[in-house]
Design a protein around this nucleic acid. Structure first.
Lengths: 244, 244
DNA sequence: ACCATGCAATTGGTTGGACCATTGATCCAT
DNA sequence: ATGGATCAATGGTCCAACCAATTGCATGGT
C-alpha cells in the first residue's frame, strides 16, 4: 500500500460538522429510536448554519436510514446513532427475473444458516421468548388465514437475526428480503407459496431453544430448500404456459 | 398480509422524481463511472425544479457513494447506476474496533463458505485455470515478500467469488472486505497476520478443482478460523498491554 | 358534557436569488 | 515557451419567503 492516506484538508465540510455535532447531541441527550430531534430551524440557529445546510446533512442521514422525516410533524430517530459509526453503502443491481430471485435466495441461504446457528449459541432467555412469541403469532396467522402469513413469517425471522448478536445479518438479510419482494408484489403464479416451509419454523425454534447450533442450521437449510423448490415449480409452470 | 401494499400517494416526492429522472438520463446517455453529469444549475432548469431540490437529491446519491462532487469542477459518476437497483446502506456501530471486525468476519464466514461450495459445483475449466493462476501469483508473492501478500490474496478470493456464478456474493464480500480494511488502516498489533491462513488457499483450490463442494467449504471454514484466531490473539495482547 | 368542524401554529418541503470558494482554462507579459 | 494573473464555470452556503402536511386548540352544535 504505497498510497499513504493523506486526505486533502477540507476547508469546507459543514455537512459533516453538522452531523458530528448532531451525533454528539443525540448521544449526550440519550435519544433513542423513535425520539424526535430538534427542528431544522432550531438546529440551524443553534449551530449557526443555514437551514439549507442542516437539511442537506439530515438528507444524508435519511438516506442512510438513520432518521425519518415527517412533514408537518418533525424528524425522528430511526436507528441508534453514535459519534463513531461506520457506513458502508451497498447498492445491488437486482433484476426482476427468475435468475435474480434464485441469486438472492442463495445469499439468504448462506446468511440464514449462519445467523440461526449463531442465534442458537448466543441468544438469551429474553430474546428466546420473544422469538417464541413471534412464532406463535405466525402460526396463528397461518391457520386463520389459510396460509397467508408472510408478514408474520418475516417478523419471526427478523427476531432470529436480531438475536444472532450481529446486526450485519439483520441488515443484509433485510436487503435480500426487499429484493425478493420487488418481484413478489404481483403474485407470480405459485399458489400456496410458503406452505411447505411452514413446519420448519417451529423446528428451527426448537433447535435454537435446545442450543443446538448445527441442528438449527440443518432445519434452516431445509426451509430454504422448500422455498427454492416452490420457486422452481413456479418457473417451470410459467415456462410451460409460455410454450403452450 | 392484511396490509395491502398501498403506498400513500406522495404529492411531494420531488427528490425521488429527480433521482429517477437522472437515473434514466444516465442510462439513456450510457454514462459510465468517471463521466461527468450535468451541472446542478442545468439540471434544475431542465427538470423545472429548484437547484436546492437538485442538490438534496444529489446529496442522497453522494451519501450512497454513487456520485462524487468536486467543487469548482463538477459532479462525477462514481459507480454504475441503473433505474432498478437496491440501495442498502450498512451501518456498523463503531466504538469497538474488535467487535466490528469480528462481525464482518462472521458475515464473511457465512458468505465465503457458500461461495466456495457453489464455485466447486459450477466453475468451468477456464475460470478454474484463472483461479489457479491467481493462487500461484499469491503464493509467489507470499514467499518473495515474507508473508505480505494481502493484495494478491484478495484477488485470489475474488476470482473464486466471480466463479460462483452469483454476482451478489462478489458484491457483498467486497463490502465486507472494505469494512474490514477501514479498521485495518492502522496496523493494530498483530504481526504475521495471515501467515496461518496461507496453506488453506491451496487446499481450497484443490477441493474446488476436485468438484468437492463440502470439502471446499470445510477448508474455507478452516481459513476463516485462522483469521479469527489471529484477531483474537491481537485483541488479547492489546488488552494485556492496557492492563499493564 | 361530548363530539365534530374548522382555524391556526408548527414543521418539513420547495423556491429563487445572491454570494463565497475552488477549480481549470485563457490570456498576457516576460 | 513559460510563468503568473485573470476570469468563467461549478459546487457550497446563505437568506427570506412561501407551500404542504400535521397537530392541537378553540369554537360551536348536539
Amino acid at each position: 500500500m504505497s498510497q499513504v492516506r493523506l486526505p486533502p484538508i477540507q476547508t469546507t465540510a459543514r455537512d459533516d460538522a453538522v452531523l458530528a455535532a448532531l451525533a454528539g447531541f443525540v448521544q449526550q441527550e440519550g435519544l433513542k429510536p423513535g425520539d424526535k430531534l430538534p427542528t431544522e430551524r432550531i438546529l440551524a440557529e443553534r449551530l449557526k448554519v443555514s437551514r439549507n445546510t442542516v437539511r442537506e446533512a439530515l438528507t444524508r442521514w435519511e438516506g442512510l436510514g438513520l432518521v425519518e422525516r415527517l412533514q408537518g410533524s418533525g424528524t425522528f430517530l430511526k436507528a441508534a446513532v453514535s459519534p463513531h459509526m461506520l457506513h458502508m453503502p451497498l447498492t445491488l443491481a437486482g433484476g426482476n427475473d427468475f435468475a435474480s430471485l434464485m441469486q438472492t435466495l442463495e445469499v439468504r441461504r448462506a446468511l440464514e444458516a449462519e445467523a440461526v446457528a449463531l442465534c442458537a449459541v448466543r441468544t438469551g432467555p429474553q430474546e428466546l421468548s420473544f422469538i417464541q412469541r413471534k412464532l406463535e403469532v405466525m402460526e396463528e396467522a397461518f391457520h386463520s388465514r389459510a396460509g397467508m402469513s408472510s408478514e408474520e413469517d418475516w417478523e419471526f425471522h427478523q427476531a432470529i437475526y436480531r438475536a444472532s448478536g450481529n446486526p450485519l445479518f439483520e441488515q443484509l438479510i433485510a436487503a435480500m428480503h426487499e429484493m425478493f419482494h420487488r418481484f413478489w408484489e404481483h403474485p407470480l403464479g405459485v399458489r400456496d407459496f410458503g406452505h411447505a416451509s411452514f413446519p420448519y419454523h417451529r423446528t428451527i425454534y426448537e433447535r435454537i431453544a435446545a442450543r443446538d447450533a448445527e441442528g438449527a442450521r440443518a432445519e434452516a437449510l431445509k426451509l430454504i430448500a422448500t422455498v427454492e423448490a416452490d420457486l422452481r415449480r413456479g418457473e417451470a409452470a410459467r415456462n410451460q404456459a409460455r410454450h403452450a
